[in-house]
């Protein structure tokens, strides 16, 4: 067992974990943050995407011990206090989700994308989301959702 201390959604946690515990397992099992999903075992699908120290990462390919001392944001903490992040709102406005399973990872990836590129082209968005599978939407409305969010965020800034 190894002791880890980390901040998740602004709250500090300290636990003993087996070194083989994945960050995704830790978030889901230990912290009951089940919005982070596990859809594959090859780091391909992106359903487990969370933010670690301000970067979108695949929490199924990071050991909980590697996250010791980090700050993690999961979908549950993306927009505190019951508000919605622009990307979350965009997904609702543009029907960017159907079954919802890939959605949380997709939103976390998209939020990171807009953080770094506030005015992405359609191609930027498609390229930027290549690490996330969606089997329901054909990505059409996901692209529109991210475009909606980009516009909404830029209106907030201006």
């Amino acid at each position: 067992m190894s002791k880890i201390t980390l901040k998740v959604n602004q709250k500090s946690h300290s636990h003993d974990v087996e070194p083989r515990t994945l960050l995704a397992h830790y978030l889901r099992e230990q912290l009951s943050l089940t919005g982070t999903h596990i859809g594959c075992d090859t780091s391909s699908c992106g359903s487990c995407t969370v933010h670690m120290d301000g970067m979108a990462v695949k929490s199924c390919t990071i050991l909980a011990v590697q996250a010791d001392g980090s700050e993690i944001t999961t979908i549950e903490g993306l927009a505190p206090n019951g508000q919605l992040h622009a990307v979350q709102q965009g997904f609702k406005e543009c029907h960017g989700l159907q079954c919802g399973f890939c959605t949380t990872g997709m939103i976390m990836a998209a939020a990171d994308l807009l953080e770094r590129n506030p005015d992405p082209s359609e191609e930027d968005i498609r390229h930027g989301l290549e690490g996330n599978f969606c089997r329901c939407t054909g990505y059409h409305n996901i692209v529109r959702s991210v475009q909606w969010a980009a516009k909404s965020m830029s209106e907030l800034v201006n």
């Binding site: 780091s43 979108a56 690490g131 996330n132």
Partner: peptide, 9 residues
């Protein structure tokens, strides 16, 4: 290489 998440790590 890979995808944005993979590139961060």
């Amino acid at each position: 290489i890979g995808d944005p998440m993979i590139r961060y790590k």
